[in-house]
Design a protein around this nucleic acid. Sequence first.
DNA 1: ATGTGC
Length: 486
Amino acid sequence: MTTFDADGVTLERVREYVWEIPQEEGMRVPARILASEALLEEISEDKTIEQIKNTTHLPGITNHAICMPDGHQGYGFPVGGVGALDAEDGCISPGAVGYDINCGVRMMRTNLTYDEVQGHEEELVDSLFANVPSGLGGGGIVEAGVDTVDEILARGVDWALEHGHAVEEDLLHCEDEGMREGADPDKVSQKAKDRGKNQIGSLGSGNHFLEVQRVTDVFDDEVGAAFGLEEDQIVVLIHCGSRGLGHQTCNDYLRKIEQQHKGLLDRLPDKELAAAPAGSQLAEDYYGAMNAAINFAWVNRQLIMHRTRKVFERVFDRSWESMEMDLLYDVAHNIAKKEMHTVNGAERELYVHRKGATRAFPAGHPEVPKAYRDVGQPVIIPGSMGAGSYVLRGGENSMDLTFGSTAHGAGRLMSRTQAKNEYWGGDVQQELEDQQQIYVKAQSGATVAEEAPGVYKDVDEVVRVSDELGIGDKVARTFPVCNIKG
DNA sequence: ATGTGC
């Protein structure tokens, strides 16, 4: 048997791209890492393997704890992790959702071609930067009172539709149609709402960005046509989350769990995996609050997208409708959701935690929007600002292998601190412009250094593994034109 | 990710 030794843990190769940490004392199930050998080498350089192993100690964990090919170390649970925990006798874990609740991506199509945009890059990037709020702290597209925040938390993108920031079709092309059921605004703290009320419609910082891209390759003509993608077409990618509101919500519930469920906490190998037992009041409260924060993030991305339509109208002097600026899809990559899955022939309700992992439901699944039902759910995988991104579709094997999930990005190779030692923001920007005609504008040079292309894994390799495993199949590739970030 | 730790 082929094995891989990673700092005291021996992984067994089950088959190509599937590595397993066999069950040992304390582990309720084996752990799996889905990766090529090259990616596994990179994954083994931080605490990812130890973390995915720890995750198998969570009560109710089903089949395997799974790490995606873009996995890296996170808070307790690795980024790129999937954990399906029984919704009746398992638990729910804020650290397995992530601090940025409903961090996710949406892609908007246009009918513009790269030729039509060339020569306007600087005007476009300047106008986007001036009109889409970004960076740390406050200042959003909408400044709201607490009553409005409550409505956004309860209704999601439906609120944006009522207030002129969306059209009907935007809702249909969003995961959960832009409104997660079971949101309970009363379970989101006043402090979280105060942090969120002036951040509605703002990118934030870190790896969040808005990028104008051109489609360079369509690998599957049939699915590409269903997604409305063709070569040379201009698209817009928006990557952001729930800002301070989600962060505060995660923090609030981690502290409550530590106080109220210390018994469970003491039996876990890492305090950062803190979890509320299924059926407890706190599990219900966190689920209601998390669902509300999910809605907040969808409104956030919706407002940014709609503002982008207005920016394009000014730059290209045409209506956004005439440029066919329609939402292709919006998909979350930091969430937990109660879902029914077939486990050993039986239907079970599970809290599926996807942290840095994207839902990738296959063709025919009832939760795939009608327009895409026959081909599979669109999956958007952002790469670095120098590499471009991918659109995949949910693959045939995703329900069997990964509870309907795949990767979420390129995955970091080094810490933010290390990145700042290796790169200088201004140099990175200049190089992108001179060598690749990519125009980047950011609030902070440090952020550009932290997000330099060299700090990321090879997105082509991540997507290749997803495609080979049949969990998410390659549909199209994009390349950056211009990018704004915090 | 984040009013960059509570």
